[in-house]
């Protein structure tokens, strides 16, 4: 090769090396951290994270033994807030604007639906799973999480309390001591919260079945899963 070609080759090689080095970020990209610096301000997030359906398999096994598919769906109720307020008896919370439901199918045939709810118990949140028939009547209730003291927990998970919800619909009453078993005094707040939560879910689903609600099927993967601390 002639000197001119060697020069050209050298220029090209240097250029390539420079661009590759620049692309890889050399020099001056060390990882020093200023530990004395003030941290950035945090982000304000007020709303509670969505309550996920944490453990579908045992819930389906108990309530829908032959089920082979659950189809998630979002019911958007934000356009029905006046009716929701009237039916619930209070201003709807942000959680009431939309309800995630799982439509349960067995061999392609709808057999019921599952909804989850987080309510404020006496000593922490109580998360429950409500299974419903296709006509909106309660089939059963299971708990996902709670942090109640032993006596309260024993009452809430008792068969007498849980089975009392079965067969109830949106037009039934949910008063502990009258329509439901009477809870012991320490469990009263949490039991009331669960009863109210069930009633409110039934109201939300009843409103969603009427005109004005938006039904949006979701991809199965969009079933929200949220890690708990």
């Amino acid at each position: 090769m002639t000197t001119g070609r060697w020069t050209l080759l050298g220029v090209v090689a240097v250029g390539v090396a420079a661009v590759v080095g620049w692309s890889l970020g050399f020099p001056g990209r060390g990882h020093r951290v200023d530990l004395a610096a003030e941290p950035a301000a945090g982000t304000r997030i007020e709303s509670a994270p969505l309550c996920p359906w944490r453990n579908p398999a045992p819930d389906l096994a108990e309530f829908f033994p032959g089920a082979d598919e659950s189809r998630p769906e979002l019911l958007i109720l934000s356009g029905l807030r006046p009716e929701l307020a009237r039916r619930l008896g209070h201003t709807p919370s942000s959680d009431d604007n939309a309800v995630h439901v799982q439509r349960i199918h067995a061999s392609g045939r709808p057999v019921g639906l599952v909804v989850v709810r987080r309510v404020k118990g006496e000593s922490g949140a109580v998360e429950f799973v409500l299974a419903l028939e296709t006509n909106g009547v309660v089939r059963g209730l299971r708990y996902q999480r709670m942090r109640e003291p032993a006596e309260t927990e024993a009452f809430l998970v008792s068969a007498a309390w849980r089975s009392a919800f079965a067969g109830k619909g949106v037009h039934d009453a949910f008063v502990p001591g009258r329509d439901l078993p009477d809870p012991p005094a320490p469990a009263r707040v949490s039991a009331l919260a669960v009863a109210d939560g069930v009633r409110e879910l039934l109201v939300l689903l009843d409103v969603a079945a009427g005109p004005g609600a938006i039904r949006r099927p979701l991809a199965p993967a969009s079933n929200p899963a949220h890690p708990h601390p």
Partner: peptide, 19 residues
């Protein structure tokens, strides 16, 4: 912490049990 309070639905004055 903010996330814990949101998930446990706790406000100042509420009880919180550690099972």
């Amino acid at each position: 912490g903010a996330e814990t309070a949101a998930i446990e639905l706790r406000e100042p004055g509420d009880a919180l049990h550690c099972p």
